[in-house]
Design a protein around this nucleic acid. Structure first.
Length: 275
DNA sequence: ATACTCCCCTGAGAGC
DNA sequence: TGCTCTCAGGGGAGTA
């Protein structure tokens, strides 16, 4: 599933592939994908607009259309393909954008969880779909002081905090497990047990892991063909997520799987201690 | 305010 | 082989 590094890779790949096309036509085959405005307005307003810039906020893709912004969240399985109109598409292709260079940008989503929004652009770049979202993981305003003041009194599990997009956004289930492992902390560690230096470590490890994943995701840009999105190449580097029953790469102990914050959670019972 | 639960969806995998 | 059942998961909505 696309988390921050995958979204970043998709965005860079799209920019590289598409450059700055004008969207000439749009066909929507599953209307719920369009979250705002209504489908007819979405189509009417996005037609004729040029993609000037590609940006990211958390797991959102942001396409700068000059006086408007087109925002996409891939959720679980959303993908973009750049294809010729003559190429076949399957039942999971829900939105097709025809570009002025003759190609099509096709939105594909097996589970139909992804969403798109189109808003008039504002200076502060805040939109209703971002309302409940906090700082992006790489936002410089996200500091250990900020996290400490916001969290040190709360009795919430560490992993629940990492997944809470209203505090910082971009982390999903995979990287939440990896960050807990890198911090050598049990995912159920109560956040109020963390000291200031632990929050520094949290931010450091989060950014280190995200940057590493972006770098290895970025390597797929050169080799990719028609399919955008990341093929799971850097799963090779995962230490605990989806590793239930395998041996910990550090100590050899069997990785365990539990539920934390209603999410499947893998961890090493020896390396990761409750604080 | 916080923490659950359900919902949206489909394919994969398990069990029979 | 083929059927049915269960589960995964980001995030919104509703509820205790």
């Amino acid at each position: 599933m696309p988390e921050l590094p995958e979204v970043e890779t998709v965005l860079r790949t799209l920019e590289h592939q598409l450059n700055h096309p004008v969207i000439e036509n749009v066909e929507v085959y599953w209307t719920r994908i369009i979250a705002y405005p209504d489908v007819d307005t979405f189509i009417k307003q996005i037609k004729g607009r040029k993609i000037l810039a590609y940006e990211r906020y958390g797991k959102f893709l942001i396409f700068d259309l000059d006086d408007m912004v087109w925002i996409v969240h891939l959720r679980m399985e959303g993908k973009f393909y750049v294809q010729r109109p003559s190429e076949a598409y399957d039942k999971h292709t829900h939105v097709i954008f025809t570009l002025d260079d003759g190609r099509q940008l096709r939105y594909h989503d097996t589970r139909k969880f992804g969403r798109m929004w189109l808003y008039p652009k504002t200076d502060e770049q805040r939109y209703p779909c971002f309302e409940k979202f906090g700082y992006d993981v790489f936002d410089e305003r996200l500091t250990s002081d900020y996290l400490y003041h916001r969290l040190h009194h709360k009795k919430t599990a560490l992993k629940a905090v990492l997944l809470d997009q209203s505090i910082m956004c971009g982390i999903g289930n995979i990287y939440a497990d990896e960050i807990c492992f890198a911090m050598k902390m049990h995912p159920e560690t109560m956040i109020n047990h963390l000291r200031k230096k632990d929050f520094e470590e949290l931010i450091y490890q989060t950014r280190r892991i995200m940057n590493g994943a972006i770098r290895s995701g970025g390597t797929t840009i050169r080799s990719y063909t028609s399919s955008l999105g990341v093929d799971g190449r850097f799963q090779l580097k995962l230490k605990v997520h989806a590793k239930k029953g395998e041996k910990c790469s550090v100590c050899g102990t069997e990785i365990k799987k539990i539920q934390v914050a209603q999410r499947g959670t893998c961890y090493c019972p020896v390396c990761q201690k409750r604080k």
